[in-house]
Write a protein that binds this DNA or RNA. Sequence first.
RNA 1: UGCCCGGUCGUCUAAAGGCAGGACAGCUGGUUUUGGUCCAGUCAGUGGGGGUUCGAAUCCUCCCCGGGCAACCA
Length: 563
Amino acid sequence: MSDSSAEAKSSKNFLEEIIDKDLAEGRHTSILTRFPPEPNGYLHIGHAKSINVNFGLAKKYGGETNLRFDDTNPITESTEYVQSIKRDVEWLGYEWKQELYASDYFEKLYEFALKLIRDGLAYVDDSTSEQIAALKGTPTTPGTNSPYRDRSPEENEELFKRMRDGEFPDGSRTLRAKIDMAAPNMLMRDPVIYRIKNAHHHRTDDKWCIYPTYDFAHGQSDAIENITHSICTLEFMPHRPLYEWFIEKLGLFPSRQYEFARLNLSYTVMSKRKLLQLVNEGHVESWDDPRMPTISGLRRRGYTPAAIREFCNRIGVAKRDNLIDVSLLEFCAREDLNRIAERRMVVLDPVKLIITNFPEDKTEMLPSENNPEDEQSGEREVPFTRELLIEREDFMEDAPRKFFRLSPGRNVRLKSAFIITCDDFKKDEKGEVTEIYATYHPDSRSGSDTSGIKAKGTLHWVSASHAVPVEVRSYDRLFNVEDPAGEEGEITDYINPDSLVTIPQAWAEPAILDDLKEKSGSAKHFQFMRKGYYYEDISSTAEKPVFNQTVGLRDTWAKQKGK
RNA sequence: UGCCCGGUCGUCUAAAGGCAGGACAGCUGGUUUUGGUCCAGUCAGUGGGGGUUCGAAUCCUCCCCGGGCAACCA
């Protein structure tokens, strides 16, 4: 795992400063963190930041990290999500110390609740959720005590046991912590800590019909595991006093909660609810649609774990709200892919190029380096013949001075092959170019060029008779505004209609067939020369190869044209 | 108009009373058989007013702006 950027950075984030201090003052001798997903959806790049913070910090200080599923709400949770989360964390390259579940502690949490009851710090409330809400007050007005607030510990204990025994219907009673209905922090106004849900739980089956709330489960779970630093996102900040209240009243290990700003990425959304909406309403194919900011979507798109980790290291950790430019993510992808992706030539939008002075029946095999950034990657052979295919956009009838590609009378280098001179071309009735004619210079052969001819540009190409058809999918941002969640109306009002462009038939050099996952076992990352980085889609087969564009190459020519 | 956070280049993020620095993005050039990579350079910031201090992004104060908080969600 490369932590180069994290190591190169000498400055520390606020969490590192806290840990330094805790270690220096002897508050802790080692650190233990946890990553606590709720198994009710797929992980996204925002979770990757959290994973990187929790696992990364622990690793940096020689500590460890537990993976703990926060499974206190059986209605929304399932083992399907547990599986996908474990897969994603592993794929990102992290190892957890223990795989744990809040549900492992249900019996212990029940005992904790009994202790609060006996200490006069919790009571059974017969109010409906509407009544509780009505008495809660508002941020600017204090709440009112529940009529059930002063029940005796004995009565509370009996009722709570009967709740567990399944004597009452869903929603009819709750257990509440007895704190302060006038607290300025709404969460301290006698929060509900147990509720009745006659629901099947993915791990405890039908053993329980009462379930603890997040607030009554999370801090205690941390304490049970001796988590030293419980790191979460900013929206949990108001929960911290409650977190500390339970630990204090129950006399548990003093885990402490710290909050950082969650990741926001431009041109996408980052909440599970909104991502689920995109899936349910069919705006994307699935959770792992390559346009989704989910880990599974990024993986399918061709992002690498190293690229995502590097991104997380570069964005930093702080407490101010942020909206990270997606170009940084793309930069990290290109940086890693440039290093590892083998180059191939693939023509996306073909036009025929005929080398008039090359024999019709001849095929010349030309070696081409797989990756100029990696000498170990070796070479492959590319067949060169009289009839080739090049990109339609690489030819111009009337080209401006700065167009370094093919045009009548001009020279161009065919990558790993020869320099050619364009002599002529043919158009159809509609004015569309159908064939381009050129002569090649035999003494300009790549690697042994003695021609002395200069060529400004280099084009990628494939032999028409050897080219293999592949489907290529190109992606653009899912939304056409930077912060869709911050706009008026529905996020779906801002969906980019061109976020997926499918090219059913592009033409690849034959070498690509050898590296299809059906043959080699796993998909490889490629750079389609002069186009971008591509990764075989999960739907791809040897009969019908399909490639997703991970990210395009930086394109300064496109920028120039735009001016 | 309650309480709690926060505000440094376009975007992130450093600077713990002592030269406002880095990255991405942008722009210029150089190298290049990918208009890629690489290299060099460049543009660009402390929300505002007062105060403390020899000296303030940093401390105090008032204001402005942004976010969060009224699930039996997490």
